[in-house]
């Protein structure tokens, strides 16, 4: 059996009276590529933000290698360094060049030497095809390029799990392709990934497991083959009807 990295137990989150996540149970094993799909407002992004501790759950637990991360800043920082995140709006540091973006966290968080940080940055920037742009600033790049840099930046931390929060939703169709391509290559390297996405074809193609979320619940958690061809839950069927018909 594969090693368990993150397990989410009975996780609930509400903003005031509004319940966004309801009793979520998900277990993530090493090497899994999990795509989370579902309509907007179903709690997908909030779930990812809870996993990275950007949001604090109302109840329930998130275990990392079987241990709960205590509410101590130092522990949270350490945990986050292992659980990278790629955002919908890229969130590249605007005051830095591409290279500085990729070296910043490895230097300040992992305390790598300048040379090691540089080598690592170049390696990952090459992987995403952005190495020639090391001197550019985020504002000078296209959306697709920014997202590729953001992925390289996250990879520089050597994360155990990489979370993707709708990484292609802010991109035009042409750029979506280049980012998905990079993500597909990553998935093939065996990196554990949790991806919130609206790209159904990609989810079906790349994920080892697909989760359909609806109104804060995990409505269905199955292999992509099952979920996309013979969904058990009527809501999943309804949601996927357009995709399945097409």
């Amino acid at each position: 059996m594969a090693e368990n990295i993150i397990s989410i137990e009975n996780l609930s989150k509400s903003f005031g009276d509004h319940e966004v996540l309801r009793k979520i149970d998900i277990s993530v094993d090493k090497g899994e590529v999990i795509c989370i799909v579902g309509s907007s407002g179903s709690g997908k992004s909030t779930l990812l933000r809870c996993i990275n501790r950007l949001e604090h759950q109302t109840s329930g637990r998130i275990l990392y290698h079987g241990k709960e991360i205590r509410d101590v800043q130092r522990e949270i920082n350490k945990y986050r360094a292992k659980v990278g995140m790629v955002f919908q709006s890229f969130n590249l540091f605007n005051n830095m060049t591409v290279l500085e973006n990729c070296m910043c966290c490895t230097r300040k968080v992992l305390h790598l030497s300048k040379k090691d940080a540089f080598d690592r940055a170049i390696t990952h920037l090459k992987k995403v095809g952005m190495a020639p742009y090391i001197n550019a600033r985020p504002a000078q790049l296209s959306g697709g390029q920014k997202q590729r840099v953001a992925i390289a930046r996250a990879l520089c931390m050597n994360p155990e799990v990489l979370l993707f929060d709708e990484p292609t939703s802010a991109l035009d169709p042409e750029m979506v392709g280049e980012v998905l391509e990079v993500m597909k290559e990553l998935a093939e390297t065996g990196l554990t990934m949790i991806i919130v996405t609206h790209e159904m074809a990609f989810a079906r193609d790349v994920s080892t497991r697909t989760i359909f979320m609806d109104k804060g619940y995990v409505a269905e958690d199955a292999s992509p083959d099952v979920l996309f061809t013979a969904p058990k839950n009527p809501r999943t069927r309804e949601f996927l009807s357009r995709y399945l018909a097409g």
């Binding site: 350490k78 986050r80 990278g84 955002f87 969130n91 910043c104 968080v109 930046r153």
Partner: peptide, 12 residues
């Protein structure tokens, strides 16, 4: 997003 981008990678 700038703050979150850094926090999400473990920066204090």
């Amino acid at each position: 997003g700038q703050r979150e981008g850094a926090l999400a990678m473990g920066m204090s």
